Amino acid sequence: MLNVSENSFYTGQTSPIFNKNIAKQARAFHRQIEGYKPTPLVSLPLLAEKLGVKSILVKDESHRFGLNAFKVLGGSYALGRLLAEYLNIDIAEIDLKTVSSKLDKPLVFTTATAGNHGTGVAWAAREMGQKAVVYMPKGSSLVSAERIRGLGAECIVTDVNYDDTVRLANKTAQENSWMLVQDTAWEGYDKIPTWISQGYMTMADEAIDQAAEMSEGQPTHVLLQAGVGAMAGGILGYLADRLGADNFKTIIAEPAVADCIFRSGTSKDGTIVNVSGDLNSIMAGLACGEPNPVTWPILRNCSDLFVSVDDNVAATGMRILGNPLKGDQAITSGESGAITMGLLYLLANHPEGQKIAQSIRLDQDAVVMIFSTEGDTNAERYRQIAWEGMLPL
């Protein structure tokens, strides 16, 4: 249920590509998109009291551009940077509503996705008057596929796992001269994944600005979920630069069946370790076996703990957020969004978790920040978990 390792590679070294200055550039781009507004940062004071911490702050990404997930931040910023580069103009000159008029014909963007990233790319392509082709791994939610198609993109569900689907998308892009917009990197392909992770920093920039206006104060503990680590790395890089890496504790959480970050963090020399197989988890957005080499260095340098958990931990987080103590606000959080809340609950209530919490001073003086990165993107399964009690602890 709970597998924890202290990060022996911690240095606190910040990143030159994930910092507050670049975050400001990304947020300036997002601000000019019609419908932009910061998503809520929700305080849960009664839950904080029950779990023995000072405050719990939850960034609720179910409100992002009406897409029920945060991923559009990365996809839209990457598409904006790609179009700016293609047109040889500054990204500040990219207007989503008029950029298509600068092109002779629409460009085709393609990606592999577990759902939310592809939705973001499809939405951004549509908003910019471009085309998108999205590949999904076997076992993907048909609801997610239909949502992507509803945004005007072509969506193809493959018969291989996520990492092999990424390879298929890359191969097809090369064969058709399409632009691959992937949120993981490999040798020779790191510029676009960097832009995607930089786009995610808007979420953290909003959260820290919002926290500055609240009585709870800035976070002393941050819990981040990881698939390939693109979001976790971008967010952690920003926070380490703005707050100082030594001023808060960071826990990186993953599904046990796809714990590539955990295994990399517990390797002999801190090098990347891949996980293969079907990687079946309810946390589809985190079911990735190959860490992003662009963001791995910041995770290695600035994380305090690596944790892998079973699916029932995420399910518990969903139920806690959706069924709050009287007086706290309800938050609809999907499987990949709620893993950190489930983990926080374990750290407060599980005997082994309590020892870990004590070791990192997760106590009555702790201000905990978590990022609920998606809402009920799979509504049927959300009901099975929240209503019917699927996957109990």
Rank of each mutant, 00 (worst) to 15 (best):
S5R: 14
Q13G: 04
S15W: 01
P16L: 07
P16I: 01
I17V: 15
N19I: 08
A23I: 00
F29Q: 01
Q32C: 06
S43N: 10
P45D: 08
L47T: 02
K50L: 07
S55Y: 05
S55N: 15
S55I: 00
L57Q: 14
S62F: 00
R64W: 00
A69C: 02
L73N: 08
S76N: 09
L82F: 06
E85N: 14
I89E: 11
E93K: 15
P106W: 07
A112W: 09
A124M: 04
M128Q: 04
Q130F: 02
A132S: 07
V133L: 11
A145K: 15
E146R: 13
G152L: 12
E154I: 10
I156T: 06
T158P: 04
V160N: 06
D163W: 04
T165V: 05
A169E: 07
K171W: 09
Q174D: 11
E175R: 14
W178H: 02
M179F: 14
T184N: 12
W186I: 00
G188K: 11
D190E: 10
T202V: 10
T202K: 10
M203C: 14
A212F: 04
T220H: 07
G227W: 07
A230P: 00
A230R: 01
A240C: 03
N247F: 07
F248V: 02
I252V: 14
A258N: 03
D259R: 12
I261K: 04
K268E: 14
V275S: 03
C288Q: 09
N292T: 01
I298A: 11
N301G: 01
L305D: 04
F306L: 14
V309T: 08
V309K: 07
D311E: 12
A314L: 10
T316E: 15
I320A: 02
N323V: 05
K326T: 02
L344Y: 12
Y345P: 04
Y345N: 15
E352M: 08
Q358S: 15
I360L: 14
V368P: 07
M369L: 15
A379Y: 13
E388P: 00
E388I: 01
M390N: 07
P392W: 10
